Simulated scan of single mutants.
Amino acid sequence: MSHRNVDLPPLNCLQPFEAVARHLSFTRAAQELNLTQSAVSRQIKRLEKNLARPLFHRHNLGISLTPAGERYFRTIQRLLRELDRESAELRRRGAERQLTLASTPTISSIWLARLLPEFQRLYPELDIRILCSESPLHLDVSEYDLGLFYHLDELPAPLGLELTPVFAGEQVICVCSPDYLSRKGPIRDPQHLLQEHRLLIVEDHYHDWLTWADWFSAVGALYHAPQYALRTNSYRLLMQSAVMGQGVALGWESLLQDELAAGRLQRALPQRMPSRGRLNLMQPHHRNPPPAVRRFRQWLLEHAHLAQKTGP
């Protein structure tokens, strides 16, 4: 059995009525509502038929409200003002509780997913949504509140975004699983790595600034094509392959802190390479961030600073 109040008027007629009564003009009401004048007129006639009385006097020079129309107009305006206030309050409360983060699949799965339980324990009332994309350029800035992406220092910030480095400085290291080393034996030096071990090589948008050739050059060693290699265009798959003992990969030390601390990965060689890019918080310009965004931003930067200070 329906509980709908059958005495309610057709609700889609109320906004046209309010606009016509306020302007005392079908033409101006139609312009405001982006409707045709005839559509507005039909809505008013439908409402008058439902109420069984006229709401407007039609004159040669225009229209005016009938006494019933005056009372109804005041009632509708009051109800619409209350609805507007309540809707604004609900939107405000919703914005305070909602947080949409954008990041790459790798950062989301390896780093962010391990951090969020701690943040959610501190702020259990917040609703968190994560969008995964390989690049902020693939997303509209209106789709998220904060982004977490690596960005080359020498490049300008993506349009419409303000960048804040998450870590003070980042180092690129080579890593593998303990199981890999137990099977293949220790790696003596970079040349031994090239000749006797499998290099995991990424062939995606990181390929021009996270490469084995750059790492070898940075640590003062000669590079040539490795004897054994596994190549993929997915950095996420590359890191999963490293964890599963398939070979040796390059990665950002800060991003892999939890994997190193838990023993799922370990340093394959002690050498480091300064990263050309850094993990950045990307915040859309010209938007007043709600409390949920401010809380997460402050918490993340404090967490990252402490984690980098203490190390794995």
Rank of each mutant, 00 (worst) to 15 (best):
I173N: 03
I173G: 09
I173P: 00
I173F: 03
I173K: 01
C174V: 11
C174N: 08
C174I: 07
V175E: 09
V175L: 11
V175C: 08
C176F: 02
C176N: 07
C176M: 03
C176V: 00
S177W: 00
S177P: 10
S177C: 07
P178F: 01
P178Y: 00
P178E: 06
D179Q: 14
D179C: 13
D179L: 13
L181G: 02
L181R: 05
L181I: 04
S182C: 09
S182L: 11
R183K: 12
R183Y: 05
R183T: 09
R183I: 04
R183C: 14
K184A: 08
K184F: 07
G185P: 00
G185I: 02
G185F: 07
G185T: 01
G185L: 06
P186Q: 08
P186W: 01
P186K: 04
P186L: 10
P186F: 02
I187G: 08
I187M: 05
I187Y: 00
I187L: 09
I187T: 07
R188G: 13
R188H: 10
R188Q: 13
R188K: 14
R188L: 15
D189N: 13
D189F: 03
P190R: 07
Q191E: 15
Q191C: 03
Q191D: 14
H192P: 03
H192Q: 08
L193R: 13
L194H: 10
L194M: 07
L194R: 10
Q195F: 09
Q195E: 14
Q195N: 10
Q195Y: 02
E196G: 04
H197Q: 07
H197Y: 02
R198H: 07
R198P: 11
R198C: 15
R198D: 03
R198N: 11
L199Y: 04
L200D: 08
L200F: 04
I201G: 13
I201W: 03
V202D: 10
V202Q: 12
V202W: 00
E203R: 14
E203N: 15
D204P: 02
D204C: 06
D204I: 00
D204V: 07
H205C: 12
H205K: 11
H207N: 14
H207C: 14
H207D: 15
D208Y: 05
D208L: 13
W209Q: 10
L210V: 11
L210N: 08
T211A: 15
W212Y: 11
W212T: 07
A213Q: 15
D214T: 05
D214S: 14
D214I: 05
D214Q: 14
D214P: 01
W215P: 09
W215K: 03
W215I: 03
F216K: 08
F216G: 08
S217C: 12
